[in-house]
């Protein structure tokens, strides 16, 4: 588990930004300050309604 004063581990992860899906690594942010903010966010009813309007082919390829 991460500790103060230690280098954080590198992870490769998907991210959503400006209507694009991209892959990023934590190590790519070396050279600048980085803030990782974890949230609890889950799919709530309003977002679920939006999800159901997506074409089914998009949803099946997403899973």
């Amino acid at each position: 588990m991460v500790k103060i004063g230690h280098v954080i581990p590198d992870f490769e992860l998907e991210a959503y930004q400006n209507d694009e899906i991209k892959t990023l690594r934590l190590s790519q942010f070396r050279g600048q300050w980085l803030i990782c903010s974890s949230t609890r966010r889950t799919l709530r009813s309003s977002a679920q309604r939006s999800w159901r309007r997506w074409p089914t082919s998009t949803r099946s390829s997403a899973s």
Binding site: A15, L34, C36, S37
Partner: peptide, 20 residues
């Protein structure tokens, strides 16, 4: 500084949140 928000949701759920 760069900010990354992280949750256990998938990128598709992130888009759904962003849209709604």
């Amino acid at each position: 500084a760069e900010v990354l928000s992280v949750s256990t949701d998938t990128v598709y759920v992130h888009k759904a949140w962003h849209d709604t």
